[in-house]
């Protein structure tokens, strides 16, 4: 493999890893703060992609789809938290698993009613639709580079909010010791609602930025759900930095696995997960006791 091909694969790995990070950071935040395992997370990724398709179709503008899709997902997250999710705090994992499974069934059918079950594609914005000519017969789409930059910006924003703001402080304190933070007088009703909506918005955002480089199809949420779970298991639950490490690890494993070991590439990420479990059962940045 020459240097340029290697560079292209490297970019692909980073781009894939960054999208995974967006989705998985939402999942890990929701678990870290709310203590709720949300199996419907992948469904919101799928919903984000369909929203992007629909809004882009209506307005002809991808940026409108980006902003509108995230806004709709955020509001949906606020509503779902107040109607369903808040009853799950303190309930056992089985209840959380099954309620979110019920949500998946509902979301899938609602998606079918609103958008049908056809496979769609979304065009990237015009000014990002070109590609960079690397060599005579090798080019790289600008949009993929834009995803990298955009996701990095979002990741930086997440880190800034978590490490530098008051809400971030509350979030960190809550992940560390929820009971103690509550005793200190933090109103968790509001924090929970905001965190859940943010988690959903991040999942949808992942779907929206992926829509132009892959097809939009009904089952796309399932694969993403599993991958985000593997990311979270690798990185450690509740740790956003862990999610970043896990996501990049999977991005690299999957991309280079397809290049070097095409026949077993589908298995590699699970092998990676098995190895990490043997090494650190609570994830790379996870705490010892869960």
């Amino acid at each position: 493999m020459d240097l340029i091909t290697f560079g292209v694969q490297l970019l692909n790995a980073v781009q894939y890893g960054m999208v995974l990070f967006l989705v998985a950071s939402g999942l890990t935040l929701v678990f870290g703060i709310l203590g709720v395992i949300n199996l419907a997370h992948g469904a919101f990724y799928m919903l984000g992609a369909y929203l992007a398709y629909w809004i882009a179709l209506m307005t002809g503008n991808y940026l409108a789809a980006l902003v509108g899709g995230v806004a709709i997902a955020f509001v949906l997250g606020l509503a779902l938290e107040s109607v369903f999710i808040r009853w799950l705090y303190g309930r056992d994992h089985l209840a959380q698993v099954l309620l979110s499974f019920g949500l998946i069934l509902v979301i899938d059918e609602v998606r079918q009613l609103l958008f049908g079950k056809d496979v769609h594609s979304v065009a990237p914005p015009d000014w990002l639709s070109g590609s960079l000519q690397l060599t005579d017969n090798l080019s790289y789409p600008v949009y993929r580079l834009a995803i990298c930059v955009f996701c990095l910006a979002v990741a930086a924003l997440i880190f800034l909010v978590i490490t530098r703001t008051k809400i971030g402080m509350i979030v960190r304190a809550g992940a560390e010791n929820r009971e103690m933070t509550r005793v200190l007088g933090i109103d968790y009703d509001k924090v929970n609602r905001l965190v859940f909506a943010t988690g959903i918005a991040l999942a949808a955002l992942g779907g929206i930025v992926t829509a132009p480089i892959s097809t939009v199809y009904p089952g796309m949420g399932d694969g993403m759900l599993i991958l985000s779970f593997v990311v979270v298991v690798l990185g450690g639950i509740g740790s956003v930095a862990g999610a970043a490490i896990g996501a990049l690890l999977i991005g690299f494993t999957d991309t280079f696995g397809k290049v070097f070991f095409p026949s077993v590439s589908g298995m590699l990420i699970y092998l990676l997960m098995a190895l990490v479990l043997l090494w650190r059962p609570n994830g790379i940045l996870g705490r010892r006791e869960v």
Binding site: I37, V233, L277, P281, V290
Partner: peptide, 24 residues
């Protein structure tokens, strides 16, 4: 492998290994 973990990790790990067989 999965029983090295607890609680919500166990759910995620079983889900991931189950899907590994699905994709296989």
């Amino acid at each position: 492998l999965a029983l090295r973990t607890r609680g919500v990790y166990f759910i995620m790990v079983t889900l991931a290994f189950g899907e590994m067989l699905f994709y296989l």
